[in-house]
Design a protein around this nucleic acid. Structure first.
Length: 299
DNA sequence: TTCCAGGGGTAGA
DNA sequence: TCTACCCATGGA
């Protein structure tokens, strides 16, 4: 049995650049396929139902079509909850208008406004984004995918295969060595276990970091206090929290800057920071869109 | 064996 | 706050 329903998107929302804003769509419990571009996700609803839904853009209106194949038809309440999850993942709430106004004065960045880039795909909860970000540190993207896939097998299974993302409580319940045997995250496993334990014990409230009323410098400091989160990982997490005043430089950013802005020569982080200074509190978004430009435009 | 990846931690200045 | 140095894993 198939349930279909549509979601109205914000006027400045664009599906493709949001889905391809970074590699998150390739990390389970997200799924991603092309022609037509479709993002899926395995998710547990508040009533305990575990489903896998798909989202794609409607041709005419730019709204989103949500599809779920299940044994029973989704109730209105379930559909409303899924719509909220999608709105959160696709970052409907982001207000990018000040950023778009800023880059109007910068000719080479006109593509961003033209395609409506700037929203970044994220997980429904901060814990999942933290865990995934930790697994991007000091490793290749291919290995990140492998680690996340193995981590997700520890989550509750879905009826049609796949798993939901494991809760912090589930991860905390492992002893660190056993966790590492499953995830094969090496030294990161201890950091992951420590993070999960702090959240599960109620010592750490990471969801509050989404609150715009909380100053970004305080959020960044809190992120940096987490084991395994240095300037890169904390800065990358800031982007996922719609906070862009940190650059979050990694080897991909540095390679992009060298190739595009420095004649192929490596530049110091200080030089890179100086280049992005005119973007002010949007600098973290500017550097990341520079990295993703080709992927987004070729999509 | 060596190097590297979407680096991080720590000591010392 | 900044730098130098050492640390970790797994794959090529």
């Amino acid at each position: 049995m198939t349930t279909e329903f549509t979601i109205t998107t914000p006027p400045d929302f664009r599906f493709l650049p949001t889905v391809w804003s970074h590699g998150w769509c390739y990390l389970p419990p997200f799924t991603c396929s092309e022609d037509p571009l479709t993002v899926g996700r395995t998710q547990k609803l508040n009533d305990g139902t575990i489903i896998h839904f798909h989202v794609q853009e409607t041709q005419d209106t730019g709204d989103l079509l949500v599809t779920n194949r299940n044994e029973t038809t989704l109730t209105n309440k379930q559909q409303a909850e899924i719509a909220m999850v999608i709105a959160r993942c696709l970052n409907f709430d982001a207000d990018l208008s000040p950023f778009y106004t800023l880059i109007e004065t910068l000719p080479t960045y006109g593509w961003i406004t033209q395609v409506g880039a700037g929203r970044i795909l994220r997980s429904p909860n901060v814990w999942e984004d933290l865990a995934k970000t930790l697994l991007t540190t000091n490793t290749t993207w291919a290995m990140t995918i492998g680690m996340v896939k193995r981590l997700v097998t520890l989550g509750e299974p879905a009826p049609n295969g796949g798993h939901i993302f494991p809760t912090a409580e589930q991860i905390a319940a492992f002893d660190p060595d056993t966790l590492n045997q499953h995830v094969r995250a090496g030294y990161r496993s201890a950091y992951l276990h420590q993070l999960a334990s702090a959240i599960a014990a109620g010592e750490l409230d990471v969801e509050v970091w989404r609150d715009p009323a909380l100053p970004s410098n305080e959020v960044f400091k809190a992120l940096k206090r987490l084991k395994g989160f240095g300037d890169y990982a904390a800065g990358a997490m800031m982007r996922l929290l719609n906070r862009f005043d940190q650059l979050g430089l990694d080897s991909v950013c540095r390679a992009m800057y060298a190739q595009r802005y420095n004649g192929g020569e490596a530049a110091s982080d200080r030089e890179i920071a100086a280049y992005y200074e005119p973007f002010g509190r949007w600098r973290g978004l500017a550097v990341w869109l520079d990295v993703m430009q080709e992927d987004i435009l070729s999509g």
